[in-house]
Design a protein around this nucleic acid. Structure first.
Length: 198
DNA sequence: CCATAGATTGACT
DNA sequence: GTCAATCTATGGA
């Protein structure tokens, strides 16, 4: 499921959101930064489904100006501002016109740590162990909304598959708490500290 | 128009 | 443990 440049391909993302979410744990997120680059291994994600399927999803009630990327071409980035303060980064799934996205909640830094610390002066897991922290360390904000991960300056490459991927309900939501749509690598020290909602 | 809740984080008691 | 930061979307007057 890679293209000629070795990235995860459009086909990888154009699948059911829950499948993509599980498969993203262990993959490598790469951002080109001029001459240097940032790399980080994804260790925690959550799936958010489409219209009428998942009351916790931004797409649940249909398209709005904020969530329009969730209905766009799979493999693009959906970035939104949460609580008017922090940014959250999602990978768009499903076919174009059908909503679905995977929230990237945490990752282990591999390369470009000095650039990340410049943006976020923290040590160890505090650098990237939450969705807002990860976006801030990578310098992702609304300008990155709609960026194409299959062809653009950010992308996803195959990484070490996790020895095991665990599953739980999602963190920080009050709707649809019964769905176990969170996937994470239990062996990673960079998994976020929040508690599942159910 | 006004009120409220939210896929979070960090500062503070 | 509490709470404020302040943008987007929704629901009611």
């Amino acid at each position: 499921m890679t293209n000629s440049s070795g990235r995860l391909s459009r086909r990888f993302f154009a699948r059911p959101t829950l499948e993509v979410a599980q498969d993203l744990v262990g993959q490598i997120l790469v951002k080109k930064q001029g001459k240097s680059r940032i790399r980080a291994r994804i260790v925690e994600v959550e799936a958010y489904l489409g219209v009428g399927a998942d009351a916790a999803s931004h797409a649940h009630r249909g398209p709005t100006p904020r969530n329009s990327e969730m209905f766009e071409t799979p493999g693009r980035l959906y970035v939104y501002l949460i609580y008017g303060v922090h940014y959250c980064m999602n990978v768009v799934c499903e076919r174009r016109g059908e909503a679905g996205a995977v929230l990237l909640r945490a990752a282990e830094p591999i390369e470009g740590l000095s650039i990340m610390r410049q943006r976020r002066p923290r040590e160890g897991p505090e650098l990237t162990n939450g969705p807002g922290k990860l976006s801030s360390a990578l310098g992702v904000d609304l300008r990155s909304n709609g960026l194409d991960l299959v062809t653009g300056p950010m992308g996803l490459w195959p990484g070490d598959p996790a020895a095991c991927v665990e599953r739980s309900s999602r963190i920080g939501i009050r709707q649809a708490t019964e769905f176990r749509y969170r996937f994470f690598d239990p062996d990673s020290h960079y998994v976020s500290q929040g508690k599942p909602s159910s």
